[in-house]
Simulated scan of single mutants.
Amino acid sequence: MKEFKVNMTRRFVQLASEIIRTKNDIIMLLLEAIPLLSFGEIVERPDNNYIVLRVDKMKRLFFVIDDKIYSFNFPFNVDVLPEVKNPVIYDSMTDLEITGVNHAVITTTFQEIFNGEENQGILDLDSDVMRILESFEQQPNKDQIWQILKKLLVFESGYLRYDYDVKLENGRLHPLHHLDINYTTGNTFKVGINNTINCVDFIDILDTGTNCYYISK
């Protein structure tokens, strides 16, 4: 099992506080988290707002901020090098490391293509993506970058959020403590829980290597 914790920057706290409504929101948050994990200070005891990358049978990012914790799938692989605390993040399909340069190209291309809009059909994007990738100087990994972008568009996010929601609490209709499953309006639903939970508890709920939790009336 590998676990990496890093404190959020002030800018990332603002980004992570925004409501997730689309797959594009998930992808952008994932892309923003990678430089913090690759180049930020890995800590044992993080501050109030932090990110956890957990890699074992599951690979997930966890975001701990204010009165909520949320998580989604991490679609890349991780290596640990001797004497280096930060994870080396790479794509197993292309074997391409998500270095600073590759990350910048992936992020810029994604932003230019989608610009906040929901995903188009992947086949329709081929010429547009390659046109943008050709504009980068000294970018020999165009095909690999496009493969990674396609992977991001289709990966299953497995989004789950824990909320301690004093503002909108409404008995059993909107419990004070609850889990939000999925993020789009048509698919999300809540599961009430009796007590507050911390990040360790939240990770345990999602950990397939530990005992299951039960839902009961």
Rank of each mutant, 00 (worst) to 15 (best):
V80N: 03
V80H: 09
L81R: 15
L81P: 08
L81I: 08
L81K: 14
P82M: 12
P82D: 01
P82Q: 03
E83Q: 14
E83H: 15
V84H: 04
V84L: 07
V84C: 01
V84M: 07
V84D: 00
K85T: 04
N86E: 11
N86I: 10
N86W: 05
P87I: 08
P87T: 09
V88W: 01
V88E: 11
V88D: 03
I89N: 03
I89D: 00
I89K: 06
I89W: 03
I89P: 02
Y90C: 04
D91M: 06
D91E: 07
D91P: 07
S92T: 08
S92W: 07
S92F: 11
M93C: 05
M93I: 13
M93P: 01
M93F: 07
T94I: 06
T94C: 08
T94V: 06
T94F: 02
T94A: 04
T94L: 12
D95H: 15
D95F: 11
L96E: 00
L96G: 04
L96H: 11
L96F: 11
E97R: 15
I98S: 05
T99N: 14
T99C: 13
G100E: 06
G100H: 02
G100M: 07
V101M: 09
V101G: 09
V101N: 10
V101T: 13
V101W: 10
V101E: 06
N102F: 07
N102T: 12
N102C: 14
N102P: 13
N102I: 13
H103A: 10
H103R: 13
H103D: 09
H103E: 00
H103K: 07
V105T: 06
V105F: 06
V105E: 03
I106T: 02
I106S: 03
I106N: 03
I106E: 01
T107A: 13
T107L: 15
T107Q: 09
T108Y: 05
T108Q: 12
T108C: 04
T108I: 09
T109Q: 06
T109Y: 00
T109H: 11
T109F: 00
T109N: 02
F110K: 07
F110M: 00
Q111A: 10
Q111M: 11
E112G: 01
E112W: 00
E112A: 09
E112D: 07
